[in-house]
């Protein structure tokens, strides 16, 4: 349904063991709230990303439930501690059932 959806993630390529790194994520999405009406007065159906998760080597880092009041192109920034080398897996869940994901590897420097 939603068009032009593209996830983007910024994660440092390497980190010291135990270091807290800053992760930035952004997904382009119109986040239609379901409250608006079109010119003819019909309700524009809700179409949002309703959940965002980040896992590190299979362990959950953040799990966010998202609501219709969140603006277009939702952006998340958070810190995560990196105990060992591994992969961050980011997943966005769309109202229409689509799932978008992105993986970034972090090496231990």
């Amino acid at each position: 349904m939603a068009s032009g959806v593209k996830p983007r993630v910024k994660v440092p390529k390497s980190a010291a063991a135990g270091e807290a790194i800053t992760i930035k994520t952004l997904i382009s999405h119109k986040m239609e709230s379901g409250q608006r009406k079109d010119k003819e007065g019909n309700v524009i159906p809700r179409s949002i990303i309703n959940r965002f998760t980040c896992e590190f080597n299979g362990q959950m880092v953040v799990d966010v439930a998202m609501e219709p009041a969140i603006s277009t192109n939702p952006y998340f920034q958070f810190d995560a501690t990196v105990p060992e080398a591994g992969d961050f897996k980011f997943t966005w869940y769309d109202d229409d059932g689509s799932v978008y994901d992105e993986t970034k590897s972090v090496a231990i420097a």
Binding site: K6, R8, K10, K24, S28, N73
Partner: peptide, 12 residues
């Protein structure tokens, strides 16, 4: 550029 929302449109 990552924080600049305008760059999403540049990519398009």
């Amino acid at each position: 550029d990552f924080d600049n929302p305008g760059m999403v449109f540049v990519e398009k």
